[in-house]
Every structure is written in C-alpha cells, then in structure tokens.
Design a protein around this nucleic acid. Structure first.
Lengths: 224, 224
DNA sequence: CAGGCTTCTCAGCCGCCTCTCAGGCAGGGT
DNA sequence: ACCCTGCCTGAGAGGCGGCTGAGAAGCCTG
C-alpha cells in the first residue's frame, strides 16, 4: 500500500514516515503543496495524507485541484484546530476524512486503513443505500425520484451513515467523524437521527435507519 | 479489558484508576519504572498507559526494554508539554500512541479505546463455531443464513464463548470477561446462558451450548 | 434589526434489558 | 433410593438507553 504524506514540518513528516513504514506502508514524502500535487498526480498512491498549512500551495487547494482533475485518490486532511479551515470545508473540497491536530497517531492509522478498506478509489459520484441516493458533489439527496431537503448537519450525518451502510456505527464514531469531537453529549446524535428519520423514512415501510440498542445505528441498504 | 497505569504522581494515578474503572476497565497501578516494567512483563494487559517521567527507570526506557523483549502490548505514552521528549521520539520507541500533559480525560479514554479496537482489528473479522457466525464489526449473528437478534449482553457472552469454542469456560471466567467483575452472583451467567440457548439452539438438534457440570460451559463447533 | 433557519441542550417518558429471587429439576455420590 | 449440590427458569422490579417536544442561542439574510 503506497501512501503519500504531504507535510512541511520535517520532524513530523519523518516520524509519520517511520511509523507508517513500521505498519507496512510504502511511504513517500512531499514537503510543500506544489511538490505534493505533482507527486499525487503521477505517483499512483492508494491514499494521500495532506496537511492544510503548506508552503507554496495550501492543502486546501491541492485537494481542490486534484478533484477538479477527476483524480479520486482517497485523501485524509490534517489541520490545526484553530486554523482558517474546518472540517466542513475539508469535506466540501472532496477530502474523504479529516483529522484535527494534534491528532492521535493510532487514530490516523485506523482511519487510513478504513479509507483503504473502503476502496474509495474510483469513487462513484453518487452514494446509494436502498433507494436512497446521496450526491456529495451536488449536495443532493433523493429517495427514489423525490428530492429530500437536508440541513448541513443532517447531510453530513447521512453521508457518514451511507458510507458505512449495513454496518453498525456507534454514537462515539459518529461524533468523531461528523462532529469532530469526543466529549459532546451523545444525545445530539439521537436528536439528529430523529430528524433524519422524519425526512428519509417512508411511512408504513421498514425503517431504513435502525437503532441497535447499546451499540449504535445501522443504515440498511443493498446499494453501493 | 485490563489496563496497567504506570504513573508516579499518586494523585494522578488514583484519579486515572477511578476514572478508568468507571469506564469498565480493570486497572492496575505501578508507581515507578521498575515496578511498571515488571508488571507489564507478567500481567497480561490489553494496554499500558506509561508516563515518561518516572523514578528508577524512565518510561522511555521501559518502552524500549519491552519492545526489545518482543513484547508488543499496546502502549500509550504520557509526557509533559515542555518535556525533553516529543511525539516523534515516542513513536520511534515503539509506543503506539502519545498524549501530552495536561490531557483531556475524555481524549485519553477515546484513544485507549482506539488502541484496543486496533488490536481487535487484527483478529479475523467473522468468528465461527459450527454453523454459527458472529461478526463483531457489524454486530450481526447468524445461524446458517438466518439472522439472530441478540441484546448487548447476550452478544458479548456469545462472542466470548465463540472465541473459546470447544473449550470449557468457567462461570468465573465468563464473569470476569463479559461482566468484568469477580463478585457477582454466578447465577446471572446461568440466566444468560438460558437466554442464549433459546435463541441459538435449533429444536430437536443437539445443543450447541453444553453444560459441563461443576466446571462451566462449552460451545461446540468445528469452525474457527 | 427582525425573522427565519439551524444547531444544540434539557427534561420527561417509554420500553427494553439486566439482574435478582425463589422454586423446581437433574446428576452424582453414598 | 435418597439427599445434596449444582443448574435451570419463570416472574418481576428497577434501571438505563434511546426518543422526542420544547425552547434557547447562534447565524445568516434581507
């Protein structure tokens, strides 16, 4: 598995390289945005770890550029907590996952593996589960032919659920990936699951968004 | 889940112990590096929380020593912000994760769980015994093709039994691993074994979950 | 600045899950 | 055959997880 790490802080980059190599990845480094963009274009990587604060071209623009060129290599974005961009921006750009510095090394590796497992490469432009369809680029959701209006938070939640459809995802995982926090009251997830249900569930039909008591939620669906 | 906390500041150590116990971990303490090294060698822990600044042997050297002995227990390092070592050093040593003091308690727990989860990921994704299949990630159990609904406690019990299928496991072992206590009335195990039997046993067939009088229970099955 | 939308908190309710208890049953030893 | 001990199980209490309506705070828009 080939990983490109685009990170300007030399010590951090080197530590990541050693760590990921120990995990069995083949790791290339780029130390600024221009270099990173160049390598990502020509390197055939399975995944790219992309810092946002970079010399020459920001990670933000590297990601935007790659996606504009229809390059769908999975991208995991890194950003400072107090930075100019936040998670919503990152995902808007077409990043596949997002971590806030200071991040946990284990979490980084876990999410890299998750990205690889998901085979996000050659990602279909529309995500499906059952008769639900979600288009990340156009921010549009439909059930069958009928469009569904969602708020940004609802959209992010549904996107996460649909990417993991048929799996049980815990409220903690949801908080980490959709809210980017650990220590928020999980009740907010319950509330938003409630909102989603009212919008996506068809009356008199089996619920698409199931509760798995004591474990989390599962979005049923055979789509891909 | 057994945790070893190696931390010389008594107040901090005690606070961690109480907090982690409340989260359902079994917690042992060591107050200096020598003691910590000794316990880590012989204690069969699922994860070790290791302060860097320790009397007698530094956490740095405890970690180095353990890895030199090919002991790959997951290690989460703690260090002071202004300390001599930083994240890069920690990862170089073979630590699996790294936290800077003062850290958030919630973050610590989240990262511990991430470490444990990662360990779990290395195991086979679907556990089998006979025609029973249990998928920990999806929280799904099937007998042949038919899905079986289990409550969290039933699920945890079956997971433990299936991991030890064809072995006799005592009620005490079950209590330790599934209930995480010693001093509970073993009757609760009998009750839950009963619940499980009603859900997983096929009528008119040999019982999969056998009682071994005076010793415990055994889940029959040739699967792996 | 007003109005609407979104996000999030809070408290109350409901139902499932968990666990206890007591009585009955079965195995094994004498 | 009898008893003792270990195991099983039905009934039920209590707690906790999850759901939801109400409403406050924040944010954007006109």
């Amino acid at each position: 598995m080939r990983v490109l790490v685009v990170e300007d802080e030399r010590r951090m980059a080197a530590a990541l390289q050693r760590g990921l190599q120990a995990e069995g990845f083949a790791v290339d480094l780029a130390h600024d945005g221009e270099d990173g963009l160049h390598q990502a274009r020509h390197g055939e990587y399975d995944v790219v770890v992309l810092d946002i604060m970079l010399p020459r071209i920001s990670g933000y623009n590297v990601c935007k550029q790659l996606r504009a060129e229809e390059n769908w290599v999975p991208i995991l974005m890194l950003s400072a907590k107090d930075g100019e961009y936040d998670m919503a921006d990152g995902l808007d750009l077409g990043a596949d996952d997002y971590l806030t510095k200071p991040f946990s090394y284990v979490v980084l590796v876990a999410r890299l593996r998750a990205l690889l497992r998901r085979g996000a490469n050659r990602r279909p432009s529309v995500l499906r589960a059952g008769d639900l369809a979600l288009d990340p680029a156009r921010r549009r959701v439909t059930r069958g032919e009928t469009p569904i209006e969602l708020t940004p938070r609802e959209f992010a939640l549904l996107e996460f659920l649909i990417r993991h459809h048929d799996e049980v995802v815990s409220k903690t995982e949801i908080l980490e990936h959709v809210w980017d926090t650990f220590d928020t009251d999980p009740n907010v997830v319950e509330v938003y699951v409630g909102y989603l249900r009212r919008k996506i569930d068809v009356p008199f039909s089996r619920n698409a968004l199931q509760t798995v008591r004591g474990a989390g939620y599962r979005l049923a669906g055979d789509g891909g």
